[in-house]
Design a protein around this nucleic acid. Structure first.
Lengths: 189, 189
DNA sequence: AGGGCCATGTAATAAGTTACATGATTGT
DNA sequence: ACAATCATGTAACTTATTACATGGCCCT
C-alpha cells in the first residue's frame, strides 16, 4: 500500500500535523492520492510506533496544540526501499463507466444529467489545477541572465501536476463523447 | 460500491459462471473495473442469497460443472435504482505519481526504468484495446442502403472502450513527459 | 511426469469508509 | 446563539488482497 509512502513524501516536502496532512490530501496531493483524516491518524500512529516518523508537540495560541510529524531515518529508508521496488501499473475503477454500460439495460437518456454533473466536476478540478500551475510554476523568464539550476522537488511536483491536468482534459473530452452518444438515443429520433 | 453492479451489468450482457466473470474482469471489463476471482465468488454468493441473481448448474464434458448465474428481477431493480442514484466523481490513486514526487528525495534517475516499464504496459494495453475495437466495432459501411438502428448496448460498450483508449493514450503521453523530466537530472549534466 | 487451464472455494490480513465523539476559537 | 475551522481521535463495519487448498482434464 502506498498511503504510508504518500505521507512520507508529503512530510519530506514539509513536516506537519495529521490535520495538515488531511488538508494537503484534499488539495495538491488529491490528484493522485486520497485519504480521510481518520485513515491518516491511524497510519501516522503506526508509523510513529515503527519509528518511521518523529512527533513533537507544538503549542499554538488560540488553537489546540498540534503534533508535528517529520520523517525519521527509518522512514526515509523505507521510502527509498519502496521506490526501488517495482510496482504493477495500477488498475482503474470507474463507477461511471459501469453506469454507462449498465444504462443499456435501463434508460440511457436518464444518465445525461449525471454525466453532465461529472463533466462539470472535472472542469472545476481542471480550473483549480491550472490556477495552481500558474501560481506555483510560472514559466521562468528566459531572458534572465542566471537561469536557476533544475530543482528536482519542484520539477517533479510540476510534472505530476501536468499529469493531473492531462487526466482532467482527457476526461472532459471523453465525457463530451459520452454525452453525444447518449443524445443519439434521445426521445426525438 | 460498484462491484455488485459491475457484475450485474456483465451478467445482463451475458450470463456466466464466477470463473467466466473473473476472466471478463481480466479482459473487456478490466479497463474500468478490476476484481479477483475470490472477490467475485464472495459477492456472487451474497447476491444469490439476496435474490439478485439465479444460479443453475451446467454439466460440462471433460470439465467440472459450472454454476451459471443470470440476473433476477430483484437484481435488475437494484441496478436500476443504483443507476438513478448520483455518485461522486471518483478519486484517483496513482502509486506511480507518489513515486515520482518521492524520487526528489532519492535518486530521480533510478526511476527511469520503472517509468519505462509502466509506459510499455500502457502501450500494450492500448494495442489490445485498439485490436478489440477493430474486431468488434468496425466502422459500418456508409454506402449500405439500410443503416442499422442504433443499438444501445453496442454503442455504449464502444464509448466506454473509447474512454479506455483515451486513458491509455493520455498516460503514454504523460509518461513521455515524465521521462523527459527525469532525463533532465541525468548524470551528464 | 509436469505444467497449464478449468472451476470453486476458505482463511487471514490489510485497507478504506462511515459514524460518533470532544472541545476550544473565530466570525456572523 | 450558531456555524465554521482547528485539532485529535475511537469504534464498527465494509471491501479488497494474499495465501492456501482441491481436483480433474489436456497437451507435450
Amino acid at each position: 500500500m502506498a498511503l504510508e509512502h504518500a505521507i512520507l513524501v508529503s512530510l519530506l516536502e514539509k513536516p506537519g500535523s495529521g490535520y495538515e496532512l488531511a488538508r494537503r490530501f484534499e488539495r495538491s496531493i488529491g490528484y493522485f492520492w486520497t485519504a480521510t483524516h481518520q485513515q491518516i491518524y491511524r497510519v501516522l500512529k503506526r508509523m510513529e510506533d515503527d519509528g518511521w516518523v518523529d512527533a513533537r508537540t507544538v503549542p499554538q495560541q488560540g488553537r489546540p496544540d498540534k503534533k508535528e510529524y517529520s520523517v525519521a531515518d527509518l522512514g526515509r529508508a523505507a521510502l527509498s526501499s519502496w521506490l526501488h521496488d517495482p510496482i504493477e501499473p495500477e488498475s482503474v475503477r470507474h463507477d461511471l463507466a459501469v453506469k454507462i454500460r449498465g444504462a443499456a439495460f435501463d434508460d440511457p437518456v436518464a444518465l445525461i444529467r449525471e454525466v453532465e454533473r461529472h463533466r462539470q466536476a472535472h472542469r472545476d478540478r481542471l480550473a483549480r489545477y491550472l490556477a495552481g500551475e500558474a501560481r506555483d510554476f510560472a514559466a521562468p523568464d528566459s531572458s534572465a541572465p542566471d537561469p536557476a539550476p533544475p530543482d528536482a522537488e519542484r520539477e517533479l511536483q510540476h510534472v505530476v501536476l501536468r499529469g493531473g491536468i492531462a487526466y482532467e482534459r482527457m476526461m472532459i473530452d471523453w465525457l463530451d463523447d459520452v454525452l453525444a452518444t447518449l443524445a443519439g438515443f434521445g426521445p426525438d429520433r
